[in-house]
Amino acid sequence: MTDTVTDVNTGEQVVFWVCAILAVAGALGMVLSRKAVHSALWVALTMINLAILYIANSAPFLGMVQVIVYTGAVMMLFLFVLMVVGVDASDSLIETIKGQRLAAILLGLGLGILLVWGIGSGLVASPTVGLDAANDAYGGNVEGIANLIFTRYLLVFELTSALLITAAMGAMVLSHRDRWKEVASQRDLSIARFRSGVHPGNLPNPGVYARHNAVDTPAILPDGGTSDLSVPQPVRARGDERTLDQVDIDEVRQITEGSGE
């Protein structure tokens, strides 16, 4: 802590440059990532770096809230949602509108340059009072925020609840499904399966007497015929199914009698 309020010591400078670069990198990564999960992680990086910058600027409360609420809660919620929706979903980054990307880059850069120049030259002219002066006005950082929230911004603070209610209710309205059909129980499902007339249980296994791959060999029914159901559909479709007369009698005998050569 220095007495001259405008001084910035080396440690602070190092923190600033490291965190600032990481924060901007995170933001760029968010925009440029193809996968939503990656984007979310990039945002988390930005958030954490911002939190560090807040703390370095004597705003510990804000820094902690940033970590707990944004990085901890909001971003994790994001990730959960993304997991549910499907991690693999990735957006195409191919631009279909002609000139859109070029114009966007140019205008973005233009706005950025204007802002950097403006803020830069504006801040040079602004006098600074130092962080301690800001915090000491109410006897500390947390007290300061508390004072503002419970006096000048009391109404607004209450009003934000309207935002939260609206958001929650909006999410309900857009996603909550009313069930108008009875939910089928296991018993119902089972009955339905038997009623459907399709073979209800497991299909018969293929013949087990083959020496190599028995999948193509049909099972023998008690009446001596074969069951087509025991051979998988693709094999049948390819015509690879073996018929009973193709089976080498010797082979069968060897297997059934269990004797070796």
Binding site: P60, Y138, V142, T151, L154
Partner: peptide, 26 residues
């Protein structure tokens, strides 16, 4: 002392004044 501790351990208690709100006006 780090700023974090400074704020937690502040000795000086500033008196909190209730905000004046004209409830009828709003």
């Amino acid at each position: 002392m780090s700023p974090l501790l400074a704020s937690v351990g502040a000795e000086t208690e500033t008196a909190f004044t209730m905000p004046s709100i004209n409830y009828y006006a709003i």
